[in-house]
Simulated assay, not measured.
Amino acid sequence: MGAARQTYAAGKVEDYLKQIGRVIVIEGKELAVFRTSGDEFYALENRNPHPKGGPLAEGIVSGHYLYDPLYDWKIDLRTGEVQAPDKGQAAAYPVHVDGDTVVIGI
């Protein structure tokens, strides 16, 4: 059985611009947090699964996908899975909104 997740307040909802990634650091992990145009929040490790790496926070959000301009990869914000024909996985973390606070599970 896996270890229990800790949750961390990651700022207020209004701190996050829609469709723009924001980098935060929790427990030494650098995360890219995204707010969609529909006010859904997602958090991925801010490390591109591409062999050459790079940040994910600078990607373009459309729906629940992140489009990486460096490698032209499409990543599902819900799971961190890179979409075909490419392959890879970014670590995804659960996010919820409690009142007006964004909360992330690590």
Rank of each mutant, 00 (worst) to 15 (best):
M1C: 04
G2C: 02
G2R: 05
G2W: 02
A3N: 12
R5S: 07
R5V: 09
Q6I: 02
T7F: 15
T7D: 10
T7W: 15
Y8K: 10
A9C: 06
A9D: 13
K12H: 08
K12Y: 05
K12P: 01
V13G: 14
E14N: 12
D15I: 09
Y16N: 01
L17E: 12
K18D: 02
Q19P: 01
Q19F: 02
Q19Y: 02
R22F: 05
R22S: 09
V23I: 11
V23G: 00
V23E: 14
I24S: 05
I24T: 08
I24C: 04
V25S: 11
V25P: 01
I26A: 06
E27G: 15
E27V: 05
K29V: 05
K29C: 02
K29A: 02
L31G: 02
L31P: 03
L31W: 03
A32G: 09
A32L: 06
V33R: 04
F34Y: 12
F34T: 02
F34H: 01
R35T: 13
R35V: 10
R35D: 06
T36Q: 08
S37H: 10
D39P: 07
E40L: 12
E40R: 14
F41H: 07
A43I: 12
L44T: 07
E45F: 04
N46K: 03
R47P: 02
N48W: 01
N48L: 00
P49H: 05
P49Q: 06
H50Q: 11
P51V: 12
P51L: 10
P51T: 11
G53M: 11
G53K: 10
G53Y: 08
G54P: 08
P55A: 10
A57M: 08
G59V: 13
G59F: 13
G59T: 10
I60P: 01
I60D: 09
V61G: 04
V61L: 06
S62D: 08
Y65Q: 15
Y65K: 15
Y65R: 14
L66D: 07
L66T: 08
L66Y: 04
Y67V: 05
Y67T: 05
D68M: 07
D68C: 13
D68A: 03
P69D: 12
P69S: 13
P69L: 08
L70R: 11
Y71R: 07
D72R: 00
D72E: 02
D72A: 08
K74P: 07
K74W: 05
K74L: 15
D76I: 07
L77V: 00
L77T: 03
L77D: 01
T79D: 00
G80K: 07
G80P: 05
E81I: 11
V82H: 03
V82M: 03
Q83E: 14
A84Q: 12
P85K: 09
P85C: 06
P85S: 12
K87E: 13
G88Y: 03
Q89Y: 00
Q89K: 08
A91V: 08
A92N: 12
A92M: 05
Y93H: 04
P94Q: 10
V95A: 09
V95R: 14
H96M: 13
H96C: 13
V97C: 06
D98L: 15
G99R: 11
G99N: 12
D100W: 00
D100A: 04
T101L: 10
T101G: 00
V103I: 15
V103P: 07
G105C: 09
I106Y: 07
